[in-house]
Amino acid sequence: MNHSDHPPHDHSSHDHQPPPDEGRQLSDVQYLEIALRELLIEKGVINADEIRAGVEALDAVTPAQGARVVARAWCDDQFRQRLLADGSKACIELGIDIRPTRLVVVENTDNWHNVIVCTLCSCYPRLLLGLPPDWYKSREYRSRVVREPRKVLAEFGTQLPAGVSLRVHDSTADMRYLVLPRRPANSEHLDEEQLAALVTRDSMIGVTLVQTSLVRTQAIPD
């Protein structure tokens, strides 16, 4: 799994710990965040431990969850069928409960490719993929992917083979979506865990394909 997003403008040297606020110039909105949090703590509405636990819970969910689901579906056709029939129910088999929203799994095939968006806000299958990447929340992606999805995919370096039709899924309400990518060619020798390691976040959103040939040690913009 490649979790290391390498931001172009991040001057911090550490990959995993976000920088503390101290010593930085804060924006007005950052001051507002501190004020709201402090006041709510002082009034006993929340406490600091709950905030810390909440942040840890966010950090605990990564796209590795979704990758487990995908790899299981590739290795177990019965599971794959249950997953496509009722995504929420099938995920419970793997200990992932996405309620109160419901999971719709959309499968890429020889003829169909699927892409996920939320044009109205940024609804995202957080319990399978963690928090959405910046581009998923961007005006550019939310505006354009419903009208010119092929151009947007090309901006991720993705060209669909001729004859493949494309379906965009706009998460406007209570469903959440996960793309079940195509299992890459020449992956028969890999076991479930090795397959899961190939499955990237972006392939489960549908903007890229899963490949066996990626050089995983390189910093690739995922």
Binding site: L120, S138, E140, S143, R144, V152
Partner: peptide, 15 residues
């Protein structure tokens, strides 16, 4: 936003 004109998508993401 759906359907609006907008610039290219930058496929990078920061922490």
């Amino acid at each position: 936003l759906g359907g609006d004109d907008a610039g290219k998508v930058s496929p990078l993401s920061r922490d």
